[in-house]
């Protein structure tokens, strides 16, 4: 009896370990396979955080799954009629304290990491960011570059320079989301909200509205380009003066 209980416990631990390994594998693979290509410092941090949190979650989820599977395999009543009473266990201080301690440690770790990442995102590294004014309106984004006369429906950004987006709206609340940059902020009427990011990869990216904004919300998106600083200045000077 004692040995069979021990054996079944061993199978519980093995299930836990195997499920955790599967979870860690998924954590390493899924985000990289499915998340949009990271094109800024914030997006890289987002990706790392995603993977890290998934790895932390793997043993917790696997523990509960292994426990549930263990119950299904070893503690299911297979007879007919009403099952006989089980051992009347009411408490286990040891289990309770270790569970709460473990979950508290994980929570604190996740918190410390998250607060650190938040500080890293908020910290402005550059004293000379490129400022872009972003205007949302139903259902178009327009971008203007202070100091120039350029207003555009496309967002051009130079590589490796911090950008400060000053976001506002002409009508309802919109959500300004740079899909590949891992940052977003709402565009509110009569208010300017700001976000910072530093694009660090050349290429095309997507700008979407992620706050429901009426009839054609689904179509409110724009295209963006990260280009070399040279190309950026030639693009700026090639633009017709508008407004």
């Amino acid at each position: 009896m004692e040995t069979s209980a021990k054996k079944s416990l061993r199978s519980f631990y093995w299930t836990w370990v195997i499920l955790t390994a599967v979870g860690v594998g998924l954590s390493l693979w899924l985000p990289r396979r499915y998340m949009p290509a990271a094109m800024s410092n914030d997006a890289h941090l987002t990706m790392t955080t995603m993977i890290l949190f998934s790895i932390c979650a793997a043993p917790v989820a696997s523990g509960v799954y292994a426990g549930a599977l263990h119950v299904l395999r070893h503690h299911r009543y297979r007879g007919d009629g009403v099952p006989p009473p089980a051992p009347q266990i009411r408490e286990s201080t040891k289990l309770l304290t270790s569970w709460i301690t473990a979950s508290a440690i994980l929570t604190v770790f996740v918190l410390v990491w998250g607060l650190g990442a938040l500080a890293a995102e908020n910290g402005s590294s550059s004293s000379n960011p490129l400022v872009v004014n972003v205007t949302g309106q139903q259902w178009v984004w327009t971008f203007s570059y202070p100091g120039t006369h350029v207003v555009s429906d496309e967002l051009y950004l130079p590589e490796n320079r911090e950008v400060e987006f000053r976001v506002t709206s002409l009508d309802v609340t919109h959500g300004f989301w740079l899909v590949n940059m891992g940052v977003q902020v709402d565009a509110n009427p009569d208010v300017i909200t700001t976000i910072h990011t530093t694009p660090d990869k050349l290429g095309v990216f997507e700008v979407r509205c992620e706050q429901f904004c009426g009839l054609n919300h689904a179509f409110m998106d724009a295209v963006g380009y990260v280009v070399t600083p040279q190309k950026f200045s030639s693009w700026l000077s090639a633009q017709p003066a508008r407004a």
């Binding site: 205007t135 309106q137 327009t142 207003v151 429906d153 017709p240 508008r242 407004a243």
Partner: peptide, 26 residues
Amino acid sequence: VNNPFFDSVVGTNGGTAAVNGKVVTH
């Protein structure tokens, strides 16, 4: 218009439009 950007012609071939036969950019 709410946003003067939309007084301009954007994205057409040649960047222009003809209004009653007259070619304009805005």
